[in-house]
Computed example of a mutant assay.
Amino acid sequence: MQTKKTYTLQEATKKLEHYCAYQERCHKEVVQKLTNMHMIPEAIDVIVVHLIQLNFLNEERFAKTFVSGKFKIKNWGKRRLAFELKQKDISKVNINQALTEISDEEYIGVFNDLAEKKAHSIKENNLLKKKKKFVDYFLYRGWESHLVYDKANELIK
């Protein structure tokens, strides 16, 4: 029989301070971690408040770093970024604020570069299938459909 590890309030608080200091976290991730540590709801509330007061936990900061990282590294579009943040229970205000951090010029520039590369990399002779692969690739990554369809019609002829 395995006994589950129990934590005192102080031990759990220290553990979560390190957890949040290592990487930006959202409230949902922290609550999930505490739940997995078998903490009671009252203790979870106390620890989350403590982390917010000491600025270990900040949803606005989390949203901005999440958007910046996923846009620059994974080349996600704004729709996918907003969807992923909603999944993490981030408020609409913080989502919109984070998305405005991406300039329109940079956004369109990244999309155009990515579209050029993708159009040349698709090895398909049938034009309709090639367009479908192109469109599916960008829609899955959350790019706006009007951008995707316009670019597909422009590049794939």
Rank of each mutant, 00 (worst) to 15 (best):
M39V: 02
G109S: 10
I90E: 09
L85F: 01
N112A: 02
V31N: 01
K78N: 12
D45L: 10
K64S: 04
L57W: 08
C26F: 05
K131H: 05
E60P: 00
F56V: 00
Y22M: 08
W76C: 07
E17G: 07
A12G: 12
K28H: 03
E24N: 11
G77V: 00
L139H: 06
E59S: 15
A115Y: 13
I95F: 14
Y22C: 05
L51N: 14
I52N: 08
F66A: 08
A82N: 11
K28I: 06
K28R: 12
H146G: 06
N94V: 01
F138I: 02
T13A: 09
F56D: 00
K86S: 14
H120R: 15
L51E: 00
A63M: 11
F83E: 12
A21K: 15
V49S: 14
K151I: 00
G142R: 03
I156C: 08
K33R: 14
M39L: 15
H27K: 06
D45W: 03
E11D: 14
L139A: 01
I40H: 09
D150H: 10
V110T: 12
E84N: 08
I90K: 03
V30W: 08
L127G: 02
L127V: 13
K132T: 13
E29S: 03
V30G: 01
K132W: 09
E84P: 13
G69F: 00
I108D: 08
L51M: 07
I108R: 03
E106I: 00
K78R: 15
K92R: 14
Q23L: 02
K88M: 15
P41V: 01
V110Y: 12
Y137I: 00
I90T: 10
V46R: 12
R25D: 05
I90Y: 07
K72S: 09
C20L: 07
I47G: 09
I90M: 02
N75T: 04
K92F: 14
I52D: 08
K130P: 12
N112S: 07
K157R: 06
L99Y: 15
L57A: 01
N153K: 11
I108H: 04
N75W: 13
K64L: 01
W143Q: 04
D104P: 08
F56S: 00
E101R: 13
I90R: 03
V49T: 13
N126W: 07
V67A: 04
L127H: 03
F62W: 09
E84L: 06
F66L: 02
H38G: 01
H50G: 04
E84Y: 02
